[in-house]
Deep mutational scan, measured.
Amino acid sequence: MTLTLTVPPGAKVRVRITNENGETTEIEVEPGETVTITLPAGSTVRVEVEVVDPDGRKRTETFTLKP
């Protein structure tokens, strides 16, 4: 399973991925970048995406991906 994120110009994104064992991976994606994350097959993962807009506003979306 893959997750692809494209960050709009001016925004910053931090992604936290937590697996079933509670292990967390965190990455930051710079403005204008596209990143593809390969998620472990057969695992349920929690993905938290934090977006910081150019004006400093933050918003966070959290979702769970199941196999």
Rank of each mutant, 00 (worst) to 15 (best):
M1L: 07
M1V: 05
M1D: 03
T2E: 02
T2Q: 04
L3H: 05
L3W: 13
L3R: 02
L3M: 04
T4E: 05
T4G: 05
T4H: 10
L5D: 01
L5I: 06
L5T: 05
T6M: 12
T6G: 13
T6F: 13
T6S: 07
T6E: 10
V7W: 15
V7A: 01
P8T: 13
P8E: 13
P8F: 12
P8R: 11
P9F: 09
P9R: 10
G10R: 09
G10E: 11
G10I: 04
G10P: 07
G10S: 08
A11E: 01
A11G: 07
K12N: 10
K12S: 12
V13Q: 01
R14K: 05
R14F: 12
R14I: 04
R14V: 08
R14S: 11
V15K: 01
R16N: 04
R16Y: 05
I17T: 12
I17W: 14
I17G: 12
T18R: 05
T18C: 10
N19M: 11
N19R: 11
E20A: 05
E20H: 07
E20K: 04
E20L: 07
E20F: 07
N21V: 07
N21Y: 09
N21I: 10
G22L: 06
E23A: 06
E23R: 07
E23C: 11
E23N: 09
T24G: 11
T24Y: 07
T24R: 07
T24A: 11
T25A: 07
T25F: 10
E26K: 06
E26C: 05
E26V: 04
E26F: 04
I27S: 10
I27V: 08
I27F: 11
I27L: 08
I27P: 15
I27R: 11
E28V: 02
V29L: 08
V29P: 13
E30V: 13
E30F: 07
E30R: 11
E30H: 09
E30P: 06
E30G: 03
P31K: 12
P31I: 15
G32C: 10
G32W: 14
G32F: 12
G32R: 13
E33M: 08
E33R: 08
T34H: 10
T34C: 14
V35I: 06
T36K: 09
T36D: 08
I37Q: 12
T38M: 08
T38F: 13
T38P: 08
T38W: 13
T38A: 09
T38D: 07
L39F: 13
L39G: 14
L39M: 10
P40M: 13
P40T: 14
P40D: 09
P40W: 15
A41L: 11
A41K: 10
A41N: 09
G42Q: 13
G42A: 13
S43E: 15
S43G: 13
S43C: 12
S43R: 15
S43T: 10
T44S: 06
T44R: 03
V45K: 02
V45N: 07
V45A: 06
R46V: 13
V47M: 02
V47F: 02
V47L: 02
E48W: 04
E48N: 02
V49F: 03
V49A: 01
V49D: 00
V51G: 01
V51I: 11
V52D: 01
V52L: 02
D53G: 12
P54R: 06
P54I: 05
D55G: 01
D55I: 00
D55P: 00
D55E: 02
D55V: 01
G56D: 00
R57D: 01
R57L: 03
K58P: 01
K58E: 00
R59M: 02
R59Y: 14
T60M: 03
T60H: 01
T60R: 02
T60F: 06
T60K: 03
E61A: 13
T62D: 05
T62N: 01
F63Q: 12
F63P: 15
T64C: 15
T64Q: 03
T64N: 03
L65V: 12
L65T: 00
L65G: 00
L65M: 14
K66S: 15
P67V: 15
P67R: 02
